[in-house]
């Protein structure tokens, strides 16, 4: 007698992981971006986020295609090059009750999109902003981007002689309230960071080094798998306990920096570097700058502030989504127009 197949494992809202999957990836086999999509799926599944409550945003580029490869049950907007921040801002203004995740690339963010990127950070717009960072333009076949390290080498032998923009240092300085860097090959760290990102209220900026296997994974690249395996220096070990999880772990409070997120979950950052305080802006930026001098690629959560008001808080809007407010709330009555007219006579 055949036994019934075991029911698939479900998350705390009763959905199996398959409900978080997307379309088949058309990116290159081995592309770091695919691993990041997998971690997003895991994080959303494990956090029990209702897929219909998520907006997936992107600009243009290999990275920006990836929202098609996770969470097909979520609305998605693949917009124009470098301008995902403004589209996201508008979408969030229309419906701030959604969880918004934006996927960008280093070209999309640090070159054409820099103008919008910095203003998104400055507004502390409540969303997760991921840079799938490989240091090159993939779809146009391998030109350097603005996050390519100085001295790094293209396949063609061209050496980059301009300094890299550190998007994390920039994000910390400009007002993002959760800033970290990870590596597409570090499943554990990236998953914990993404789960904490989902719990955070404010701009989460994650720079995820994501090697381009076709154009930037060779000797001389500083964004290759090999380089990252050799030079990845975690500043802390990221642990995350969601609010609905009943896990008590003993830890030495002297060794772990615990941050209570606004939804009641807890971000635990085990100190790997002496006395690193992820709530100290100036220290965070200094540490990142120093790492560049030492040719280290720091990863981990660099900065977190759970108290700063978001852009939505500042706008003081009603709790309901603005986009679907009923006419009775959005159209002033006839008496209002009559009064205006009388005043103009």
């Amino acid at each position: 007698m055949a036994t019934a197949a075991p029911a698939p494992k479900t998350n705390h809202i009763g959905l199996p992981i398959v409900e978080y999957r997307g379309g088949k990836s058309t990116l290159c086999a081995g592309c770091g971006h695919n691993a990041i999509s997998e971690r997003i799926i895991d994080a959303m599944f494990e956090m029990g986020v209702q897929p219909e409550r998520v907006m997936k945003m992107s600009g243009i580029g290999c990275s920006s295609k990836s929202p098609a490869y996770f969470m097909s049950r979520s609305h998605s907007f693949n917009s124009v090059h470098g301008r995902m921040p403004s589209v996201s801002t508008g979408a969030i203004l229309a419906n701030h009750t959604m969880t918004t995740i934006g996927v960008s690339g280093d070209g999309d963010t640090a070159s054409i999109g820099m103008g919008q990127f910095v203003h998104l950070l400055r507004r502390n717009l409540p969303m997760i902003y991921i840079i799938e960072d490989n240091g090159v333009y993939g779809l146009t076949k391998g030109q350097f981007s603005a996050t390519a390290d100085i001295g790094s080498k293209l396949k063609t032998g061209v050496i980059n002689d301009l300094p890299a923009i550190d998007t994390c240092a920039l994000a910390i300085q400009l007002g993002a309230t959760f800033v970290g860097r990870s590596f597409s090959g570090d499943k554990k760290q990236l998953l914990a960071m993404l789960k904490a990102a989902i719990a955070h209220k404010g701009t989460v900026m994650l720079d995820v080094i994501s090697p381009c296997v076709t154009f930037n994974d060779h000797e001389g690249s500083t964004k290759s798998y090999k380089f990252m395996q050799e030079n990845d220096e975690p500043i802390n070990e990221v642990g995350f306990v969601a609010s609905f999880e009943d896990i008590s772990v003993d830890y030495d409070s002297g060794q772990v920096y615990e941050v209570e997120m606004h939804d009641g979950s807890s971000l635990r950052l085990r100190k790997l570097q002496e006395d690193y305080d992820p709530t100290n802006k100036a220290e965070a930026v200094r540490t990142l700058m120093a790492a560049h001098e030492n040719n280290e690629v720091l990863t981990g959560v660099f900065y977190i502030d759970t108290s700063k008001p978001t852009f939505i808080d500042l706008l003081n809007v009603v709790d309901e989504p603005l986009g679907t407010l009923p006419e009775s709330l959005t159209r002033p009555p006839k008496s209002a127009l009559d009064a205006l007219m009388a005043n103009l006579q």
Binding site: F77, V87, G90, M98, P321, G323
Partner: peptide, 9 residues
């Protein structure tokens, strides 16, 4: 456009 897409006027 982001707002219009998400339902706002």
């Amino acid at each position: 456009l982001g707002a219009g897409w998400a339902g706002a006027r």
